[in-house]
Simulated scan of single mutants.
Amino acid sequence: MLTIALLALTQAAAPQQGPIKSFGAWVVACDNAKRCEMTSIWPDDSQPEEGSPYDQVSVSIDRAAGPAGGFTVEIQLPGNSGSDPVQVSTERGFSIRAVPKNDLLRFTGADAARIIAAMVDGTDLRVGDETSVTGMASLKGSSAALRFIDAEQGRVGTMTAAVAKGAKPASAVPAPPVLPRIAYVRPIGAAARFTPAMRRALDKSSECGSVYEGGTGELPGAEVHALGGGKTLVLLPCGSGAYNFSTAPYILSGNGAPVRARFDVSPGMIAEGPQELVNASFDAKNGRLESYSKGRGIGDCGSAEAYVWDGAMFRLVEARSMPECRGSVDWLTTWRAQAVPK
């Protein structure tokens, strides 16, 4: 019965990632379990001028799903912000004070709910003290983003909604979906030998070797990791740019020829062609293979994925994304799964 149960876990439907949208100066996303996040971005497409208050703070908000799901509001402050109380306010008279910890203001419960209510009608969320403003986040689009969360979590018309309020009780809000469970193979044992002849053959067949033609010195080394179950992961270097390093993933079984690794969801949302990882890393402690593709050097846009090996393919356990290159380093989660060791 245990074998059948684990087989059912590995044959689950392909991941359907949650939606991600942009509204004005905010990006919002909900994952497959209806946990929702929204984050502030620059008000315009270009970076604010030096010294602008819009380039000094970043605001991140999340809300748990279900009838009792509440808000968490985090405001990242500039470095060396000190330990004195900081005031968060809007131009409509709302204000709340708190002491930062590690350059971060964090609000939950009733305080977070008060900030959310003030955002709906405000123009800017301001950070500073009674006499000066050191940073601001534009609230343009924040109401639409909150309304999006209301709809995704089934709160429209209920007392728990942030914007689309109604008379229905909290009990009318649906319970959150259960996270999918993915059975994975523990990465134990020794990695198989990846020979120089195998490297030369892969460089030729994948055309990854041609990327480095004309360069000086030796080719970048390939990473080799034991996956368990007699399988070995080979991460073959396949080119690089200013801030992204591409890798072709292969599976090696004993003395057989390496074969391209399979994924249930392509890294970086690649629709066609051989799948590649970007800025790849493998953590043998938890069996996670990660890919992190930056849209530009400062890392304010791109996509990231994490996978585990189920014995036949890599299965997605986390996906994050930021489609707008407008100052936010808070990429939003669109997929989560619980990895269960076999």
Rank of each mutant, 00 (worst) to 15 (best):
A110V: 06
A117N: 15
L179M: 15
G229F: 09
V127Q: 13
K140Y: 10
T131E: 15
R181V: 04
A222R: 02
K204Y: 11
A164V: 04
G154N: 01
G230R: 06
A201G: 03
F107I: 11
A151K: 13
S171K: 14
E207P: 01
P176V: 06
H225G: 04
A161E: 01
A113D: 15
G221W: 05
A190R: 14
E152K: 11
V185L: 11
I182D: 10
K204C: 00
E207L: 11
A117S: 15
P174C: 04
A170P: 08
R106W: 09
T123C: 03
S206L: 05
M159I: 15
S142C: 07
V185I: 07
R181D: 14
M159A: 10
K231C: 07
E218H: 02
M198L: 15
R186H: 10
S205L: 11
F148I: 04
S205M: 05
M198W: 09
E130L: 08
E152L: 04
V211G: 11
R114T: 05
D121F: 07
L227V: 05
G166D: 04
V156G: 09
T158N: 05
R200Y: 03
T195A: 06
V211C: 09
K231S: 13
P177W: 08
V127N: 05
A222T: 11
K204L: 12
T158G: 02
T216L: 13
G217E: 07
D111K: 13
T232Y: 05
P169M: 03
K165P: 00
G215V: 04
I188W: 02
M136W: 01
Y212F: 14
A226E: 10
L179C: 06
C208R: 11
R106L: 12
S171F: 08
I182L: 08
A167C: 01
L179T: 09
G229W: 02
A110K: 15
L235H: 04
K231A: 14
R106N: 06
L236T: 04
A172C: 11
S142T: 15
R147D: 15
R193L: 10
T131W: 03
S132P: 09
E218C: 05
K231D: 15
P220V: 05
L202I: 10
C208V: 09
P237G: 03
S138P: 12
R186N: 13
G214C: 03
V133E: 09
A161G: 00
G128R: 02
E223M: 07
K140Q: 13
R186A: 10
S143Q: 12
A151E: 14
A175Q: 13
S142E: 08
F194I: 01
T158C: 04
K165N: 04
